[in-house]
């Protein structure tokens, strides 16, 4: 997930501000979410993995990809508002149905100097 915030020139932090910069305007809450279902092929591999345990790489990638997309949606919303940073970013995950997961990202859009 190295490129999580790289394609866009918008600062993401989990802090209440951006270090070294001053917040000049608040735009309020921005959010992005996506719901992903499991891939059948990956599910079969996961079934094997359930015998020996350990990391399920397919699922890790799937969820990382999904999270990236939810962050991108949040970033897009922030850019529409004219923000150049999103502070206090938080993530939430919930399984809405068997085999599907919702990835949710939210934060506060701000403009910094």
């Amino acid at each position: 997930m190295t490129s999580l915030s790289r394609p866009v020139n918008l600062i993401l932090t989990t802090l209440e501000g951006v270090p070294g910069k001053e917040i000049i305007e608040h735009y309020g809450l921005v959010q992005g979410s996506t719901i992903r279902a499991k891939h059948v092929g990956k599910d079969i591999m996961a079934g094997f993995k359930n015998i020996v345990g350990g990391e399920l790489k397919g699922y890790t990638e799937l969820l990382q990809e999904a999270r990236k997309e939810s962050v991108e949606r949040m970033v897009k919303q922030a850019q529409l508002l004219g923000a150049n940073a999103v502070v206090n970013v938080r993530f939430a995950t919930s399984s809405v149905a068997p085999g599907a997961a919702e990835l949710f990202a939210y934060g506060t859009a701000v403009k910094v100097q």
Partner: peptide, 20 residues
């Protein structure tokens, strides 16, 4: 944070399963 000039968010995640 006076000593900080730049900030970026980092995420690490992993999916783990139990064995049989």
């Amino acid at each position: 944070l006076p000593h900080a000039h730049e900030a970026q968010m980092f995420v690490g995640s992993v999916v783990v399963a139990n064995d049989y």
